[in-house]
């Protein structure tokens, strides 16, 4: 069993006007097999948490700690974090022209696993995972994310989550921009990964609808860079009915 522990995390983002504080003391503990939903209004800092955990250079951790089974994540480079078992499904996956999906997947898998995957089984594994996510096999030869639709990009992110088998996956608004069919396909992929690998999931979302497909064990409401309220799945249902108004009033009061 693994534990990802976030303690009193403060993060600033680089802007033209200088560093702007976004996260103001986040505390969160995620264990293997658990699914934590982070919900909150736009601009509350949800995606900043995701990017900071992955080590995006635009975000500066000004205080606090993040540890993975006691190891200091903040001391690790971006690639070291991924090899340590963190995975970020990005909100806006980046196009990499001229690098085929097949080459990319194999290169990343090799880096994460520390050795090249066995040729025969790997090919089968990729093919099957693509089938499950209804990704056309022709995508293997296309450039990473280039010309992909929004839904195709998100499915490609979840494909990686399934193939790389991380210890913890952070899904940054994976549901945004998906129609119902795509949302279901993507959610099934996440649930398969959970069933197969006991991955801990940090599910960042603005809406509650993805929680009908991926059941959270814990729900945290993010407001103004910190967790304002925590609870079980029932908190999500309450948010569905009430929206975030209650928190916004509290934050400005």
């Amino acid at each position: 069993m693994s534990t990802l522990e976030i303690r009193d995390l403060h993060v600033s983002v680089e802007t033209k006007e200088g560093a702007k504080p976004i996260l103001r003391g986040v505390d969160l503990t995620i264990n293997s097999g658990e699914t934590h939903a982070i919900m909150g209004p736009n601009g509350s800092g949800k995606s900043t948490l995701a990017s900071a955990l992955a080590g995006h250079p635009k975000y500066e951790v000004t205080s606090g700690t993040v540890t993975l089974d006691g190891e200091d994540v903040l001391q690790m480079s971006v690639d070291e974090r991924a090899r340590a078992g963190l995975f970020l499904a990005m909100q806006y996956p980046v196009e990499v022209p001229g690098v085929s999906v097949a080459n990319f997947l194999r290169t990343a898998k090799t880096a994460i696993a520390g050795e090249a995957p066995a040729l025969r089984t790997w090919g089968r594994e990729v093919k099957q995972a693509m089938e499950h996510l209804r990704i056309d096999p022709a995508f293997a030869e296309r450039s990473v994310n280039e010309g992909f639709s929004g839904g195709e990009k998100k499915r490609h992110e979840i494909l990686q989550m399934e193939l790389f088998a991380p210890r913890f996956a952070i899904l940054d608004e994976t549901d945004s921009g998906l129609d119902v069919d795509a949302l279901r396909i993507v959610s099934e992929g996440v649930n398969r990964a959970k069933a197969n690998t006991d991955v801990g999931v940090l599910l960042i979302t603005h809406y509650t609808r993805i929680l009908r497909y991926i059941k959270p064990d814990f729900v945290h409401v993010f407001v103004d860079g910190a967790i304002a309220e925590e609870g079980g799945p029932e908190l999500a249902e309450r948010l569905e009915e009430e929206g975030y108004d209650r928190f916004l009033t509290a934050a400005t009061a």
Binding site: R81, A82, V96, V99, T107, A108, A111, F164
Partner: peptide, 23 residues
């Protein structure tokens, strides 16, 4: 692009190589 590739465990040196080769 570099961040995306590195976030998949690919070391910076190899990530840069991939991007330039791709170009």
């Amino acid at each position: 692009q570099l961040f995306y590739l590195m976030a998949r465990g690919i070391p910076e040196v190899d990530a840069r190589r991939l991007v330039v080769r791709g170009f």
